[in-house]
Design a protein around this nucleic acid. Structure first.
Length: 439
DNA sequence: TGAAATGTTGGGGCG
DNA sequence: ACGCCCCAACATTTC
């Protein structure tokens, strides 16, 4: 029998790029041929609606395009459709493995998966080496002087920026080391169809540094009718752009845009240090005593953009049609669901999780808890967005509204499902009942 | 990364 | 000229 080939494995997850990839760089400089792999995990895929899923499609297309880089060095990403544990058992059968390299993944599901894999590998004498790649500062790298994590954004961002000044961003030129890849004799591919999916026509946001947008970001980012945001969320979510490169780009150009990247680190830090927020619990526990309305019909109207509040309906329809929603409108729609409709923020969180291409657990949860008032550094509960005023401020001409609610000017547009004044008062009363009961 | 209610101020109309 | 009132505009407080 032939000797098993000796390789180290690099496992792609939320870092789908060959350039400036921390763990890939570490693998490529580890001294052994590197076998790159990607795993489509049926545990995840089978929970999705088939056959159309743009995120699966995005991943699949990205892997295909990455293959070109590996093909140039006679290698290829080995793509599997199986549970990770079974994939690694297969790899152990096929190769003489000594180390696996991968980047940190902080979500509860991922942590559990990685713990299981690491433990299984260790019984075979294989090391599981993980690296920070998804964020600039992780875990406890930016904490208060007393050693506890920040729960308020502004002081956190101050410390974050100070730390960046003293710790210039590293770069990991993995793209220049690809020659260290294992020359795979065959290419292992999995088609979308094999996994039960079909391709849908969709233009994903372009992958480029947003020079134009960032130059006017502070002035334009809040106006949904303007193409004034980077739309890089999906690329950050799947790691098709390097957060280090993007932060370096932002640092010299726009404090406001850099702050958005810091919010992303902030919420990842919160999820890490307060894992309950990733398990369906409020950051501020008393908020879990609020009596939410469990009105499925009202929720349905919100989901489908039939609330009768045009700015809300425009946002919800943009989401359903494109997998994207402008950030200002995310805040307005989230406020409307939690405050006007008094529906549990978790319902809204789940809807966004299902439909946003750029869905990220930490950021999505942070945003929803901010809107509901239950989060760290959240909007106070009595801060209720007035959809009419938000429209006056941010979509005065109704340009965004008309794009997604074309019947807005006609008699066929639905009546408001609830009156603002009534809903605001109901919200304040309900919140106060729970939050002030001990005062 | 609010909005509404309430308080204050000061210009101008008017007797 | 003066006091009174109104109210817009702004500030502060409250939710």
């Amino acid at each position: 029998m032939l000797q098993k080939p000796e390789v180290n494995v690099f496992w792609f997850r939320r870092d789908l790029r060959v350039h400036d990839n921390h763990a890939l760089f570490q693998a490529l400089t580890s001294g052994k041929p590197v076998l790159p792999i990607f795993i489509f995990d049926p545990n995840i895929l089978d929970k999705l609606d088939k056959p159309f899923d743009l995120r699966v499609q995005f991943i699949h297309e990205t892997i295909e395009s990455l293959q070109q880089s590996f093909a140039q060095v006679g290698s290829s990403i080995q793509v599997y459709y199986n549970t990770p544990i079974d994939v690694f058992k297969t790899l152990l059968d096929t190769y003489q493995l000594s180390a696996v390299f991968t980047n940190h993944d902080y979500e509860p599901f991922a942590l559990e998966r990685d713990t299981q894999i690491e433990s299984m590998l260790s019984t075979q004498g294989v090391s599981f080496n993980t690296f920070k790649d998804q964020v600039i500062f992780e875990k406890s790298e930016v904490i208060k002087d007393d050693g506890t994590p920040y729960t308020v954004f502004t002081p956190y961002s101050r410390k974050w920026k100070a730390r960046l000044l003293h710790n210039p961003l590293p770069s990991f030129p993995s793209e220049s080391k690809l020659a260290a890849c294992y020359a795979t004799p065959s290419k292992l591919v999995v088609s979308l169809e094999h996994m039960g999916f079909s391709k849908k026509n969709h233009d994903f946001p372009v992958l480029e540094f947003p020079t134009q947008v960032v130059s006017k970001y502070g002035e334009q980012r809040n106006f949904p009718a303007i193409d004034g945001t980077s739309k890089l969320g999906v690329h950050l979510r799947f790691g098709t752009i390097s957060i280090r490169a993007l932060a370096a780009f932002a640092e010299s150009r726009s404090e406001v845009f850099l702050n958005e990247l810091i919010w992303r680190d902030f919420y990842h830090m919160i999820l890490w240090n307060f894992p309950r927020v990733g398990k369906g619990l409020s950051f501020k526990r008393v908020y879990d005593d609020i009596q939410w309305r469990t009105d499925e019909d009202d929720f349905e109207k919100w989901c489908t953009g039939q609330t009768g509040y045009p700015i809300v309906d425009a946002g919800m329809r943009e989401l359903l049609n494109t997998g994207f929603m402008h950030n200002r409108v995310r805040m307005i729609t989230a406020s409307f669901l939690t405050k006007h409709l008094l529906i549990d923020w978790r319902w809204g969180e789940a809807w966004f999780a299902k439909h946003l291409l750029d869905f990220d657990l930490a950021a999505n949860n942070g945003g929803w808890q901010w809107a509901a008032g239950s989060g760290c550094d959240a909007a106070p509960y009595f801060r209720v967005f007035n959809p009419a005023l938000q429209t006056e401020k941010f979509d005065k001409q109704g340009t965004y509204i008309r794009k997604w609610v074309p019947e807005f000017d006609t008699l066929t547009y639905v009546q408001p499902m609830v009156q603002h004044e009534f809903a605001r008062k109901r919200c304040l009363d309900t919140y106060a009942k729970t939050l002030k009961k001990d005062i």
